[in-house]
Design a protein around this nucleic acid. Sequence first.
DNA 1: ATAACTGTTGCAAAATATAGAAACTATTTT
DNA 2: AAAATAGTTTCTATATTTTGCAACAGTTAT
Lengths: 122, 122
Amino acid sequence: MSIRTLDKVVKNCNIYRMMTEDEKRRCELRANMFKALAHPLRIYMLEKLKERPWCVCELAAELGVDKSIASKYLTILKDAGLVGMQKRGILVEYTLTAPCVLNLAACAESDVLSNRKKALLG
Amino acid sequence: MSIRTLDKVVKNCNIYRMMTEDEKRRCELRANMFKALAHPLRIYMLEKLKERPWCVCELAAELGVDKSIASKYLTILKDAGLVGMQKRGILVEYTLTAPCVLNLAACAESDVLSNRKKALLG
DNA sequence: ATAACTGTTGCAAAATATAGAAACTATTTT
DNA sequence: AAAATAGTTTCTATATTTTGCAACAGTTAT
């Protein structure tokens, strides 16, 4: 087939297959994890939690936000499977349960950052 | 200090420091990368681009979306430094430039997924 | 020149995410 | 019992994303 008939081929035939349900689920799962990570302060929270467990009000103070905000961020991270919580008396202690996400965050400073520089320059 | 005076300490003193400008920038950069990844179809695109270069209309067909949508997704991924593009005659060929992001996506199926199961059960 | 094709951009509507304050629960101290 | 503290939830306003369509620009074939 000629290279200039791609759109027509695409519309009339089905050489392009649909996503399977499994693929759909997997991509949604991954996207959900990334969505939880898509906020600067939630990233910062995870970096703090890498050092040691923190309670909500400590993190709220460290981030300079209301405790309701900090609590919501932590809920989002927990639902994404990135942190865990445990009641300790009056406090609620959050801990990092998926340290791998921070290793991968370093990816942003290597490959990705140099790509962006290239993109800006050229 | 007693454990129940945390809030007061937080409000009156400054044992909790502000984020530095450097930390702010780093967290924003990482969050931006994750924002680009925070969409199921963009994840799927990256998986396809891992196999080989694709042009826009092929990816649009594979994903089952309008080419304008596919083009916008690819622009987002490019701005984030995750893919690169190159004109080839009438076609625009996109390639994966930061393969590390897919390794880290696998993180979602190991640590993270098991954490979410635990969270749902317990 | 005209027509067909690839890709990007602009626009408006719909959907989603965020922030801030207040209300609420539960625990601990007095 | 009453007051203070830690944390979650609810509500509303605002901001950001996403989507779908149409218009547009550039390239190639007829």
